[in-house]
Structures are given as C-alpha cells and as structure tokens.
Design a protein around this nucleic acid. Sequence first.
DNA 1: CTGTATGCAAACGTTTTGCATGCGA
DNA 2: TCGCATGCAAAACGTTTGCATACAG
Lengths: 154, 154
Amino acid sequence: MVYLLRKRGAWWQDRFHDIGARITAPREIVIAVLQETDDHMSASDVYIRAHKINPSIGLTTVYRTLDMLTQLGIVQKFDFGDGKARFELVNNPGGKKHHHHLICMNCKTIVDYTEFLDEELEFINKTQEKLSKKYNFKITDHAISFYGYCDQCR
Amino acid sequence: MVYLLRKRGAWWQDRFHDIGARITAPREIVIAVLQETDDHMSASDVYIRAHKINPSIGLTTVYRTLDMLTQLGIVQKFDFGDGKARFELVNNPGGKKHHHHLICMNCKTIVDYTEFLDEELEFINKTQEKLSKKYNFKITDHAISFYGYCDQCR
DNA sequence: CTGTATGCAAACGTTTTGCATGCGA
DNA sequence: TCGCATGCAAAACGTTTGCATACAG
C-alpha cells in the first residue's frame, strides 16, 4: 500500500527524496529527454532537446543534473574519444537493456550490442568477485568496449 | 638476416617507415617517455617529462605525436573521467602487459590489473568473433573497465 | 521562511588550428 | 631540394564556478 502510494511518482523520485534532493522542472525534463531517446547524448544534445521543451532551462543545470544522476547511478557517463562525455539512462523501466559498445575509430559510430551477455555475465561476475577481494574495491559497474572499424570504414 | 638488420632500429621505427612518417627527435622522445613509466600519462604529463629531456619540444607536437601513435595502434588512449585523456604504450617489448582498469569513482585512482586474463581471453575472443560477424566490424582492440570505490573511499 | 536549485556570464583547462620556420630523407 | 614536422600564439571547445535570484519543501 505504502509502496503503491510511493509508486505514484516517477520511478526516480524515491531516490531523490532519499537524499533530500528536490524535484524540479529542469530535473524532470532532463530525465524525460534521456528517456525519450536511445542515442548516446552529450550534455549539449540534452540541453538542446530540453530547451525545446522549456526554453528557460540553462546548460549549466543540465550539466549539474547529469552529474548528479551519474553519482546516483541513474545515468552512466561514457567517453568515446570525441572530446565530449555521453550519457545514458540505466536500468529504467522500459528503457535500454544492459549493453556494451562497438566503436568505429574512424567515423566514431557507436553500435550498442546486447547479444552474448550470458557468457559475459558469468565472466564478469567471476572477475568482479576476484578483483573486489584482491584490491578491496566495492565494484558497482563495468564497461566493455570493442574498438575497430565499421563496415564503411574498414 | 634482413629481419636482424631491420631490428637494429627501435622497435617502432619500421611502422613509421611503412607509412612514410619521419623519425624525428620529438617523436623519439615522446616514445621514450612513454616507455620509461608505468603511469597513465596525460598529454601534459608527457610534455613535462619530454621538456626536461629537450626543452625545445612543444606541447602541440606532443599532442600530434600521441594522436599519430594512437592511430597506429602503438599507444592506447583512455579517458577516466577527469577531463584529460591518458595514454599508454601497448605491446611494446619490455613494456606493460595486457591489462585492464579498476577505477575509483570518488578519488579517480586507477588500478591496473593483469590477473584473470585467461578467462578473459576466451570470453573476449568468442565475443569478438561473433560481433565482427554480426556487425561487419574489423575489431582491433578492446577495453574492460570496472567502476566502484577503492579501499579508502568505500 | 529557509536553503537548495537555477540561470547567466565569466573563468578554466584541455585540445586544436593557422602559419611561418626547421629539418629529415 | 621538397615537403612533412615543428613551435608558437591564438582560438576553440567542453565543462566548471561565482553569484544573485527563484522556488520547492
């Protein structure tokens, strides 16, 4: 019952309440923008779309919100080597599934792949456990990237 | 015999000749600097050390050389999220072995790990082959990173 | 009401570019 | 000699910060 009541808000609002963060229009918009796309968006990509929804939003706020969401683990920050960070929502209902990237070193195309993750899961879990123990790390996430040349560029 | 003759030069000079690139003092120094350290060096780290060896070297040349070496696959470029790219020599004789990274999201400490690579090799090879086929990529490299919190920061 | 969140402008640090000069092949 | 490679200065770019204002709780 309590659960249902709390569920009335968007799926991320509980996290905000937990840390005493306020639910504001800019934050709702940034999350909405991220949710609406499957692309790997830079801060300015997010800003442009957010700005269309509400022109009063500022780029600085987009940066600050993305940073906050990254620290909460709600978004994941990537760098594909083109000089700007990219952001993706993770584990959101109806959103993208766990995936990794295939990066063309020539044209910078990014392919998401979600195949072959069963083998990965096994490998990652084992490695993660061993690394945690050996280096005393609390591991919360991982990324696997393959680099090469795409069909056009090879 | 021919092999031995060619071997007289530094291990990377053949690659330069192949693409018609000149062997210059700045380039020798940048490679020497990378070879002398096990750290993850930023362009300006490399510049500072190179500058000590030969003060006439310029930061721009360091950037250009690192970029060239990256494209040749002689160095690998990383971004650990602190705003500057890091560079590491790969596959050089006597240099660092194949490894991956454990990144503390709080203090940005980077741990290199070289353990558990047998399991990795098997997993990577299989996945790489399947991905190559499916997406028509020519895959030349990969990176695995684990994110979390180190002993001090957890 | 109180203090977090915001927008703007300005600052910051890294990386890139234009151009005249230097130097390897 | 010829043209790639260099160094310098300046520009460009993504990102961060200071500060006065707005607004959620």
